[in-house]
């Protein structure tokens, strides 16, 4: 468990760092994929099957492909390797950002009491229950999303449609 977690965290960190540091944007996209899949693995490790699946389906399958499409349309993939964003005070910046991070994180960790037992014994992603939830309490949200997506789809069609002959 711990070993798996460590491996996945290493992958996450590598993925995150290389996503921002790599000059080749296609590499950056692929390391973003690595990051996403490692996060899905973490979710799996936490017994959150459904979230993991959603992570893979949406982030890897949809968002990743979307970014790839965007990358395919860019002109220079590799970028110029000579220009690094570099300043002499990067050490201070790192220190500052880390201190801000821990200043916010540590109290939060310290003051919250974690249950020693898992909150639910068996996680049962029953389809029926999910459907009920969606059709009862989440209906307004679903409607909103549906309308939004339809509008987006129509907009996409309008943009993609060939110009009408006059």
């Amino acid at each position: 468990m711990i070993i798996t977690f460590c491996i996945l965290s290493v992958f996450i960190i590598i993925g995150a760092v290389s996503t921002i540091r790599l000059h080749n944007i296609v590499y950056a996209v692929f390391s973003l994929m690595l990051l996403f899949s490692a996060i899905a693995g973490i979710f799996l490790l936490l017994m959150a099957e459904f979230v993991a699946v959603a992570q893979i389906l949406i982030y890897l399958g949809a968002v990743g492909v979307l970014i790839l499409f965007a990358v395919m349309l860019t002109h220079s993939v590799t970028g110029s390797s000579g220009k690094n964003i570099y300043s002499n005070g990067w050490g201070w910046g790192l220190l500052l950002s880390l201190s801000i991070l821990f200043a916010t994180l540590l109290p939060a960790i310290y003051f919250s009491d974690f249950p020693s037992d898992p909150a639910v014994e068996i996680i049962e992603p029953s389809v029926k229950k999910l459907g009920m939830e969606m059709m009862h309490s989440c209906v307004p949200a679903m409607w909103l999303i549906a309308i939004l997506l339809t509008a987006a789809l129509i907009g996409g069609i309008v943009i993609a449609a060939p110009p009408q002959k006059r």
Binding site: I56, L60, G64
Partner: peptide, 11 residues
């Protein structure tokens, strides 16, 4: 899960 994993093929 099956369909989620299947979407990686295109990548």
């Amino acid at each position: 899960f099956f369909f989620a994993i299947g979407s990686i093929v295109s990548l």
